[in-house]
Design a protein around this nucleic acid. Structure first.
Lengths: 258, 258
DNA sequence: CGCCTTGTTGAAAACACTCAACTAGAGTGG
DNA sequence: CCACTCTAGTTGAGTGTTTTCAACAAGGCG
């Protein structure tokens, strides 16, 4: 998984195991609505490639014409917007089971980069295959559409975070990531892995690295959360959520007919 | 259009004029892809009601079960998120031709309020009718899907705005609104109507009203924009865009096959 | 070992917020 | 007609948060 290693294309013998690889994705979908076996097969059949990328790789560049959408299987990726002056702001962060750029099916070119925050493994869905799904599977299409509008709901929450202090913003982020990881079994009530540098977290929250450091100390000293050594420890989740005024409703984690 | 007047339900004789009322909406769609006559008819046929609301009305409340989606015909509405302490943050603002809550078709209940920033007229699309479109018109469904992902792209831009000074944030907002109004013929290179109080603009940008006032004075004195009496005057649009580092690519205003 | 990245802390400056006061105009009722 | 009230906008002064600039410690890795 070194930086020099080229993206690895799936061999045909792996086809049978794609369903396993998509388990987090299926869980993400079924959290929102039931998935039929035909729909499951259609999704498995739409995967063209599985690839790995090392931490730091830019998987997709803003403005590039997109021919496929990317599902995250393992690791973390972020979507990055670069401003005049080279400053970077992350506009989204993704965990396994998330479609990173399903919206590129409609947009054709993205308004942001996609970068690997850790070593990652992704599955590629060619737009031709997704368009076929949109022609033949109306309900599944609505489920995919749903994923993009939940993505937008998370964007809204990030926008609304703007009005709060650094500590509350960071607490909100920890609560959100905890809830999203919990959905795929990646968190316990006591915490979750968070293999990000303070500089990266600063670009997520919209702070300078220096102030992110002070904010983390602040959270640590108030006993709300300890972020250290690639781990977020949460002594009292309810207390953290109270402090962050966190309401997970915007993640739409309940099944409804769509 | 008084506050006491109940929402006005369309009489059947108005049916023929719905196509006219949707002209801004059709323009919004056709900016992104060609629309067939069958698709146009399907959209016209999906409208159940036309209603008016006075300024200040809350059209939709967060958490309410939604039975229809709302298209803005005239006026301006915003989507509002309320925080602990009663502080309000707008997470989106809409101009005629925008679907305000197309995403409620998938989400079923919204994570934000929708409030009228002026007297408004809206068209209602029952979810049953939209779901029928999603079963029978795959291409039109992708166009509607596209509208929601452009909405998300605007959310991302608002999130990325976070890292800038108050003056740049406001300048970015003015550039965006200018570009969006221009699409439906609602702006000239010299400016556009902006019937919002400074308090409302403060809730959009994420500032206190006092600081919004100073920021507007700042923009005025640097000759970049004069916001006054419900009007945004822009002496030199290119200069404002340079100052704001504004790139309208995220609005996806070019037609592409979808 | 030297070099790089990451994390940490201090001090000063910049930015935005709060509190407070005051103006101007629209609308109301005596 | 005028006083009253309300909202919107404006300005000043003081406070608090976040940034900037700078320096340094700890650890990984060539």
């Amino acid at each position: 998984m070194s930086s020099a290693m080229p993206p690895f294309a799936m061999s045909s013998v792996d086809r049978g195991s794609i369903g396993d690889m998509l388990s987090d994705f299926f869980r993400t979908l079924e959290t929102r609505d039931a998935l039929g076996p035909t729909e499951r097969d259609a999704l498995v059949g739409a995967v063209s490639d599985v690839r790995v990328h090392p931490e730091g790789d830019t998987l997709i560049r803003a403005g590039q014409h997109a021919e496929h959408s990317t599902l995250l299987l393992d690791g973390m990726v972020a979507r990055a917007s670069y401003m005049a002056g080279g400053k970077r702001q992350f506009v989204a962060i993704h965990v396994p089971g998330d479609f990173v750029d399903l919206h590129s099916l409609l947009l054709r070119r993205l308004d942001h980069d996609v970068v690997a925050l850790s070593d990652v493994r992704v599955a590629l869905f060619p737009h031709a295959a997704l368009r076929r799904i949109s022609e033949e599977h109306a309900h599944l299409t609505r489920l995919l559409w749903l994923l993009t509008v939940i993505d937008a709901a998370i964007h809204r929450e990030w926008t609304a975070r703007l009005g709060h202090s650094a500590a509350v913003r960071m607490a909100k982020f920890l609560c959100e990531l905890h809830a999203r990881l919990d959905l795929i079994g990646g968190a316990t009530p006591q915490g979750f892995p968070l293999p990000l540098t303070q500089a990266v977290m600063a670009d997520i929250i919209g702070l300078t690295p220096v102030h992110m450091n002070r904010t983390l100390r602040n959270l640590r000293e108030s006993g709300l959360a300890v972020v250290r050594d690639g781990l977020a420890s949460i002594p009292d989740l309810a207390a953290l959520r109270r402090f962050a005024d966190f309401n997970p409703a915007y993640l739409y984690r309940e099944p409804e007919p769509r």
